[in-house]
């Protein structure tokens, strides 16, 4: 059986959902061990066990919470030396990217990132990666041992199998030379009423909204529908809305019941983060915009007129 590791990302003691999604896939590929580092690692180990981890390597040193990438890289490199896994799975998130890149360079192996799926093939592993603007999917064989593959969040559905992991203390010494990029403060900016990732309805605005002053139109609609507001990267980069609202390759992945894209063209980097939505509605003044080709309902018109009218109609319907 192939030896698979899942890097189980923790944020301030909380196990991240991507870890459990990766567990679901890892179980199909071989014997799964997870690595959980930082506060909450032991509690996380119990959850990881229920999701199929046979062993969870834990270390609760606070250095893992407070310093970027280097402590985790040290711990993984040390464990790798002792265990030599065949495949290490990471989520394609900022924190995991930092660790995976550093680890790969330290081990002298390459990696494959932005994968949407992983399969076992010919005694090795193949990752499915969007290619050529997302129009195609490349099957990429990982040539290294360990293979290191980073998978986009929400690519797999987490599910419990029931089970108990053996918890092993991972011995790691985190020296001063790895305590260099120090997180000294954490600031929460988004006061989302409904969390974007969990919302049943997501209404996202793009450059077609014309300016930040028009985003309250989307918030009013979201309020009426009990949903959350998202955004394209173009408007985040322009400073109209905070990054926390960004949907897409470098933002959040969502799969709500209904996704309403307002004034968004539908670039591949946006659609990878929302195309798994059940129903997609697009409002765009350009009938040829790529988003129209994937929407269940595409409305050609001016968002600034349609959105307020829609909000009024939803409110009227709800009474």
């Amino acid at each position: 059986m192939a030896k698979i590791w899942v890097y189980a990302e923790l944020h301030q003691g909380k196990l991240q959902p991507t870890a459990l999604e990766l567990m679901a896939k890892a179980r199909e590929l071989g014997d799964v061990e997870a690595v959980a580092l930082g506060s909450g690692a032991k509690a996380a180990a119990a959850t990881l066990g229920k999701h199929g981890a046979k062993t969870v390597h834990v270390n609760e040193d606070k250095a893992f919470d407070d310093f970027i990438a280097e402590p985790a890289t040290d711990a993984l490199a040390a464990l790798h030396k002792a265990q030599a896994p065949d495949l290490i799975l990471f989520g394609f998130t900022s924190d995991s990217r930092d660790v995976a890149g550093r680890l790969a360079a330290r081990l002298g192996v390459g990696l494959i990132s932005n994968a949407g799926d992983v399969v076992a093939k010919n005694g090795g592993f193949e990752a499915k990666v969007p290619y050529f603007g997302g129009a195609k999917v490349a099957s990429m064989r990982a040539n290294n041992k360990p293979a290191i593959i980073l998978v986009r969040p929400k690519s797999f559905e987490a599910s419990e199998t029931g089970g108990t992991a053996e918890v092993k203390e991972l011995a790691a010494t985190i020296g001063a030379e790895s305590r260099r990029a120090h997180i000294v403060e954490r600031v929460t900016e988004a006061s989302e009423k409904v969390k974007l990732e969990d919302a049943k309805v997501v209404i996202s605005g793009g450059r077609g909204m014309g300016g930040p002053d028009n985003f309250p139109l989307l918030e009013a609609l979201a309020g009426a529908l009990g949903g959350a507001v998202g955004a394209s990267r173009a408007v985040v980069d322009a400073g109209w809305v905070p990054y926390a609202m960004q949907v897409g390759q470098t933002g959040k992945s969502v799969r709500p019941g209904v996704y309403i894209a307002v004034g968004i063209s539908g670039a591949m980097q946006h659609t990878v983060g929302m195309k798994a939505s059940k129903i997609i509605i697009a409002i765009n003044k350009d009938a040829e915009a790529p988003i129209m080709k994937m929407a269940d309902l595409g409305v050609v018109g001016d968002a600034l007129k349609i959105v307020p009218a829609l909000t009024a109609a939803v409110k009227a319907k709800k009474g």
């Binding site: 192996v109 390459g110 990696l111 494959i112 193949e126 990752a127 969007p130 290619y131 050529f132 997302g134 129009a135 195609k136 999917v137 490349a138 099957s139 990429m140 064989r141 990982a142 040539n143 290294n144 195309k275 997609i280 009938a287 129209m292 080709k293 994937m294 929407a295 269940d296 309902l297 595409g298 409305v299 050609v300 018109g301 001016d302 007129k305 349609i306 009218a309 829609l310 109609a313």
Partner: peptide
Amino acid sequence: PAETIEGLTQAETRKAGSIIQDDGTAV
């Protein structure tokens, strides 16, 4: 190289639904 491309397939695409003009009935 870290990886070798073994093959390319067409990405799964969602089928386009209906596209309508906002002629007053869109809402």
